[in-house]
Amino acid sequence: MSTAPAEAVGPLMRGVAVLRALSDADGRAGLGDLVRATGLARSTVDRIAATLARMGYVRLDGPVVTLAPRLMELANAYLGALGLPALLGPLAVQLAEELDESVSLAVPDGDGIRFVHQSTRRRAMSLTFRIGDLLPAERTAPGPLFAAHWTPGQWTAWRERRAADPEGLGFPGVPAGTGDHFEERVDRARAAGSAVDDQLIEPGLIAVAVPLRDPAGVPLCALSVVSHTSRHSAESLREAVLPRLRA
């Protein structure tokens, strides 16, 4: 596999750094603030801001940079480029119709997960997270499936993150919560080849997930069926959908 030369990747990464700093500043920041936030030279930040403005992704008002609506066309472009939504999305839609439950695809990202596809049913479900949001692995059904293959270094990073932020306040896509007994859930997922979320991510929401593996047996993504406690308990959902999920 060929890799892009550093001179091609560098400008992209610097542009992403400026956009991330703007996002962290709630979409509006001075050029000087962006210099401090990114560590880039002022001339570099000026050049990136001017380029982004010409592309319509930001607006410039003197030294103040503001994110522009056109930036939304880039939303989740990286997740879409994975190819999984296009490859597996139609199957997820078919499964959602067959089971009359919502079906999701998720991929690992560090010690968290990101949903890359959701086939929702028409009934109301008060999901607070969106496709692309980073969610803590310990509060999801796919999380234990991915964590079953973590390296010691990944477990160390997870424990450090938990110690610094036990309620997951660094994950704005979900309500605060602890997700206790994660390591026990990982052991159960490793043995069973499936995992359950019993209202860990959101009250009333339950899910069952199975891994989709590469030839080496490592999960590339997880397939989840999501339901509500008004329809199922976690155990009854597992019994109802697990055979079809595995198939």
Rank of each mutant, 00 (worst) to 15 (best):
S2C: 04
S2D: 12
S2I: 02
T3A: 15
A4Y: 12
V9I: 11
G10D: 12
M13C: 08
R14H: 15
V16Y: 11
R20T: 12
A21M: 07
L22D: 00
L22W: 01
S23I: 04
D24P: 07
A25H: 11
D26F: 11
R28T: 14
L31A: 13
L31P: 05
L40H: 11
T44W: 03
D46H: 12
D46C: 07
A50F: 05
T51V: 08
L52R: 00
A53D: 14
R54T: 14
Y57I: 03
R59F: 09
V64H: 05
T66H: 13
A68K: 02
A68M: 09
P69D: 14
R70F: 06
L74I: 07
A75D: 13
A77F: 07
G80L: 11
A81G: 12
L87V: 07
L88Q: 10
G89T: 04
V93A: 15
L95F: 10
E97H: 09
E97I: 02
L99Y: 02
S102A: 15
S104Q: 08
P108H: 02
D111A: 08
D111C: 08
F115G: 00
V116W: 00
Q118I: 11
S119H: 13
R123I: 09
M125C: 12
L127R: 14
R130V: 08
I131R: 12
I131F: 05
L134W: 08
P136W: 00
R139N: 07
G143N: 02
L145W: 00
F146M: 04
F146Y: 06
A148E: 06
T151D: 10
T151Y: 03
G153M: 01
T156D: 15
R159T: 03
R162F: 03
A163E: 12
P166G: 13
L169F: 05
F171Q: 10
P172E: 09
G173Q: 05
A176R: 11
G177N: 08
E183W: 04
R185D: 09
R190Q: 13
R190D: 11
A191F: 03
A195I: 01
A195Q: 03
A195M: 05
D197P: 06
D198V: 04
I201N: 03
L205D: 01
L205Q: 10
A207V: 08
V208H: 02
L212F: 14
R213W: 03
D214M: 09
V225R: 01
S227H: 04
S227T: 04
S230W: 09
S233W: 07
A234D: 02
A234E: 00
V241T: 04
R244Y: 04
L245H: 01
R246G: 10
